[in-house]
């Protein structure tokens, strides 16, 4: 039972960033823009969130309040960074994959440069204790309390709420319907008066906001509140894209896919703590490779009948047939 608690408690802080970033990718792609820049957006959000935490640490504010404020900073910075993609992809009709790659390459260099000049290190290190040993009252519930309300971060509750909001926005609002139309058949949407460019800006911007928050939550839940330009977010943005595809661009399935990937990733980092797997004596590298390998196997089986938005990656041109 203790192993189960351990597994759940350690999976969730990894799953939430994946979930949020994958949801971000979903909004962007559902509006018709491929957002491969999620990796860069995450790192950008994580870095600014951590910088904000750094500037506030030692002040009288409580740790959880700092976390929420820093989350807002991360969201805004993610949004601003995503504008670079929106501009190139929507106004300039650029190749979205290449623009995304450029944005991914840009940000580690910027972070290294800035950190080396300012802190004389590769990134920013913070020491605010975000870790929550036990949530009052809820943590005392037997089993459930131990599973979800002990040894955790409040990021997982915020993340879950954002997930619910995303699902409602996508399926139950007029905005969500229009957004989806722009990704499937922008000309049809255009013909009934939907402003395709605006909707695509909205889609990419939401992905920037969620990507920034996801990046900061990664820094909090996985990196102990630190960010650096060398390891960045360790391919999490790309994994989130795989999660999104595995989840078939649907929030509910993305949620399950994120849990699944987080579980695999958590396994690779904590083999030594799980006696059963440790005794098998398999090299740790195999566990590190596992999430990527499983991604490929899963994609191999699901991509034949892919439910990708039909117009994703194609710049909108009102004059095209």
């Amino acid at each position: 039972m203790d192993t189960l608690y351990f597994l759940v408690q350690n999976t969730l802080p990894v799953a939430i960033p994946l979930l949020l970033v994958a949801l971000g990718g979903m909004f962007s792609e559902r509006s018709g823009v491929i957002n491969i820049a999620l990796e860069g957006i995450m790192l950008f959000g994580a870095y600014f969130g951590c910088l904000f935490v750094y500037s506030l640490q030692g002040s009288a504010l409580s740790a959880q309040l700092i976390l929420v404020l820093a989350m807002l900073v991360a969201a805004i910075s993610g949004f601003l960074y995503s504008l670079l993609l929106s501009f190139a992809a929507i106004n300039m009709k650029s190749d979205q994959t290449i623009t995304g790659t450029a944005l991914n390459m840009l940000i580690p260099a910027v972070i290294l440069l800035f950190s080396k000049m300012k802190f004389n290190s590769d990134g920013v290190t913070t020491n605010v204790p975000f870790y929550v040993r036990k949530i009052p009252v809820l943590g005392d519930i037997p089993v459930i309390g131990q599973l979800f309300f002990q040894n955790t971060y409040i990021t997982i509750y915020i993340g879950f709420v954002l997930f619910l909001i995303s699902t409602i926005v996508l399926y139950k609002t007029r905005f969500g319907l229009r957004l989806r139309a722009c990704g499937e058949h922008p000309h049809a949407a255009d013909s009934v008066g939907v402003n395709v460019k605006k909707m695509r800006y909205a889609g990419v911007s939401i992905s920037g906001i969620l990507g920034g928050i996801g990046g900061f939550f990664y820094a909090v839940g996985v990196m102990d509140g630190n960010t650096n330009g060398h390891t960045g977010v360790a391919g999490f943005g790309f994994l989130a894209l795989a999660v999104m595809i595995f989840g078939q661009w649907k929030p509910g399935r993305i949620f399950l896919a994120a849990l699944f990937f987080a579980f695999l990733r958590m396994l690779s980092r904590s083999i030594a703590l799980i006696p059963f797997l440790y005794n098998l004596g398999i090299d740790n590298t195999f566990y590190k490779i596992l999430p990527y390998l499983v991604t490929m196997i899963v994609l191999a089986f699901t991509s034949k009948h892919s439910r990708a938005p039909k117009a994703e990656g194609i710049p909108f041109d009102p004059g095209a047939r």
Partner: peptide, 21 residues
């Protein structure tokens, strides 16, 4: 810092992506 070059290269790619226009 030599990272300036990485920034320059990334910016070049960014603009190359819509170089056709």
């Amino acid at each position: 810092k030599p990272e300036i070059i990485d920034i320059v290269i990334a910016v070049i790619i960014y603009f190359s992506a819509f170089a056709r226009l």
